[in-house]
């Protein structure tokens, strides 16, 4: 019961952009770059073009997503974190 309440609250607190980012990462089989995510979310017209990047970091702070820097590709790659299941699913 406690976990159900907690999950609902966490989901309710997400912005539309945050939900869009999570949805993108859920449907992708591989981690996604900042640029790719920003371009995709921007197309939804939920706010200013810089906002998706801001929300990526907010989701990371909440522990819902994680990032990894690929030195080879010189990009940050984002994916759902291990905590994602516990927090939202």
């Amino acid at each position: 019961m406690f976990w159900k309440r907690k999950k609902k609250k966490e989901e309710d607190s997400l912005t539309l952009s945050e939900k869009a980012i999570i949805s993108l990462l859920q449907s992708s089989k591989k981690p996604l770059s900042t640029e790719f995510i920003c371009k995709k979310v921007d197309k939804l017209n939920l706010g200013c073009v810089d906002e998706p990047s801001h929300f990526l970091h907010r989701l990371e702070k909440k522990g819902i997503i994680k990032k990894e820097f690929s030195k080879k590709e010189k990009i940050i790659l984002w994916s759902l974190s291990e905590k994602y299941d516990r927090l939202l699913r």
Binding site: S33, T34, E35, C38, S53, H57, K74, I75, I76
Partner: peptide, 11 residues
């Protein structure tokens, strides 16, 4: 060159 500006700020 080659880097995304948000990625630089994040790193």
């Amino acid at each position: 060159k080659g880097f995304n500006y948000h990625d630089i700020a994040s790193l």
